[in-house]
Every structure is written in structure tokens, then in C-alpha cells.
Simulated assay, not measured.
Amino acid sequence: MERRTPTVAIPPEQRPFNEYQQLRSSYFFRWATVEPRVYLGTILAVWSVAWIVSGPVAAWSFPPGRMPWQFLVGGAGGAGIILGLVLLRLYLGWSYVHTRLLSASVHYEETGWYDGSFWTKPAEDLAKDRLVVEYQVAPVMRRLRRTLAALALFYAVEALLCWLM
């Protein structure tokens, strides 16, 4: 597709700053922006609720009465997979908005998926969007990357425990 400044204005809901505001105000994605204590509490809550699915699967594989450690490690790992999927969804949503805010021109759809075009941001919008990225979106992205790295470390410990058992 060729890049051109359209004669029709970009729809307001597809402007990167408006997408950021919608993301920030949505119940699910707002979770990544709360204070650290609430953020960690929500991570633990999601992991605990994920035990509803992973616990029975782990119990079927490793009967808790005969193999308690394997049951705990298996259930924790299964719950971690569900938590990882939730965190990955958070990261992908924030990453999408991050990319669109940083770009000098963005793709948008005029009436449907088949007739998209590119919009080149005015200098003022670009400067505003980049400030939003620097002070609002980048800290959220760092937090999510650190959380995903901690989850990867959790999986490394899980793998080591499985290997030792």
C-alpha cells in the first residue's frame, strides 16, 4: 500500500491517542497501570483462580496423597501457564498502542478491512504521542516485561524441580 495523506480524516476511534485512552480505561488493560501492591495482588489472584483448572489436572496426573510434591509443582506450573497467557495478552495490547503512538504515520481502515489507508500525524500530535509513550506507556511496558521475565524464572525453577523429582 502506498503512504498518502488521506482526504478523509482518520476515524476518531482509530487515532493512536484515542486508542491509548480506551486501553487505559478498559477494565482488563487498566490492571497493568495500578500501584505495585494492587498489581501483585491481582497477579496472585489470577494465579490462584487458575488453580481451579490446573489443580484437578495435576491431581489426575499426580495423586496428592501419593505424590504431593509433584502435584504442587504440576499444579503451580499449570496455573502459571494460564497466568502467562493473561500477561501475554496484556503485553500485546500495550505493545500495539505503544507502536502506534511512536509511529509518524499509522494505518487505519476507512470503511472496512479492504480499504485501509495511512495517516501522517501532524507534528503536534506526534510530539504529544511520544510524550505519552515516554511517561505513560513505557513504564507499563517495563513492568509487564519484568513480570514476564519473573514468570520465565518461575518456569526455570519449576523445570529444575521436575528434573530433581
Rank of each mutant, 00 (worst) to 15 (best):
S61P: 00
S61C: 08
S61K: 06
S61Y: 05
F62M: 05
F62G: 05
F62L: 10
F62R: 09
P63M: 06
P63I: 09
P63H: 02
P63L: 02
P64R: 04
P64F: 06
P64N: 07
P64C: 03
G65A: 03
G65C: 04
G65N: 10
R66L: 07
R66E: 08
R66G: 08
R66V: 03
R66D: 10
M67Y: 15
M67P: 02
M67H: 15
P68T: 07
P68H: 06
P68A: 06
W69E: 10
W69Q: 11
W69C: 02
W69F: 13
W69L: 15
Q70C: 07
Q70N: 14
Q70V: 02
Q70I: 03
Q70P: 01
Q70W: 07
F71R: 05
F71E: 06
F71I: 03
F71C: 08
F71N: 05
F71H: 06
F71Y: 15
L72V: 15
L72Y: 13
L72M: 14
V73P: 10
V73I: 15
V73M: 09
G74L: 04
G74C: 06
G75F: 00
G75R: 07
G75C: 04
G75I: 03
G75Q: 03
A76R: 04
A76G: 15
A76P: 07
G77F: 00
G77Y: 04
G77I: 07
G78P: 06
G78D: 01
A79W: 00
A79F: 00
A79K: 01
A79Q: 09
G80V: 14
G80E: 09
G80P: 02
G80D: 12
G80L: 13
G80M: 13
I81C: 04
I81H: 05
I82H: 01
I82K: 07
I82R: 08
I82C: 11
I82D: 08
L83P: 00
L83Q: 05
L83N: 02
L83W: 06
L83D: 10
G84D: 02
G84R: 00
G84E: 01
L85P: 03
L85S: 15
L85G: 14
L85H: 08
V86E: 04
V86K: 00
V86T: 02
L87W: 09
L87I: 14
L87A: 12
L87C: 11
L88W: 06
L88F: 13
L88H: 09
R89D: 13
R89A: 15
L90G: 08
L90D: 08
L90E: 11
L90M: 13
L90K: 05
Y91P: 01
Y91W: 04
L92K: 12
L92M: 07
L92P: 01
L92C: 11
L92N: 06
L92T: 11
G93Q: 10
G93H: 14
G93W: 14
G93V: 12
G93T: 08
